[in-house]
Amino acid sequence: MSEKFKVTIDNIVIEVDPGTTILNAARMIGGDIVPPAMCYYTKLQGSGGKCRTCLVKVSQGSEKDPRPMPKLVASCRTTVMDGMVVQNITSPEVIEARKGVVEILLINHPLDCPVCDQAGECHLQDLSFEHGAEQTRYEFKRRTFERIDIGDKIQLHMNRCILCYRCVFTADQITNERVHGVLNRGDASEISTYITKAVDNDFSGNMIDVCPVGALTDKTFRFKNRVWFTKPVDAHCECDKCSGKVTLWYKGEDVIRVTGRKDQYGEVQDFICNTCRFDKKKTSDWTIEKPTEIDPRSVISANHYEMEHMLPVIDKKIM
């Protein structure tokens, strides 16, 4: 379709194709006006709308019908109309609502970042740093779940889960059989397998990549290191199951973790298979491309891996 819709997001005008969501239109503009998204995932059909962090105000519905929308809308699931005017960070109402959602997401979160493998690349950490309050007003016992084992590759920490349903969609859409899902209702809902069956198939590892928090982590990387001490490097290999394009996370000379390549919104570019993720942990398995581009503000980039001299800790000559 040649016709384009004109949308104004926080006073910035952009023309997008019909059918684009407000969130994706905002991502085309980029910068601070992009609403945070915890549950939406571009590659997963049907995702989004659940976490409510991407709420925005539509102050003008469209050119034809300029009435504002009565409630804040989830930008990830609302498609743009021609002449739509959206307010994100320019609306105090949105900021207030988002702050509320972040507080509510954190009331039952264990906040165990110091022992969580996701720390450093956790979206909930970023979200609470950017939009959260310093202190919670929640004074009750936090909700906990019985720990269950979902297999030898993936560690499930239900207490950290924010129920974004991304892993459910992943299992539905890129693996041949989904054996896990959401059980129970309300704040007792939990991610679980059917009678604690193991999640085991060729693409199950992608559940780890799509998880925005530390609820699903890599068992082969468990407690090995903090992500900000590791160096991400783009690499590829010949793989008959997937594209083979991955990010290798080095600690010294050892590959300690393999993940899919993620873009600036934390979404993987290509899903990778479990063989690439869990079994190829030697540099010789891979063709190295280049250091992964990391946002300079990220804690991971604080590692300064672009330095000419290696850091003393990992310099074999000194050791």
Partner: peptide, 21 residues
Amino acid sequence: YHHESCGQCSPCREGTGWMEK
């Protein structure tokens, strides 16, 4: 409402329990 929340979206899932407490 705490008991009957479906648990899909965060404000209702966590907020209803908070109000009840």
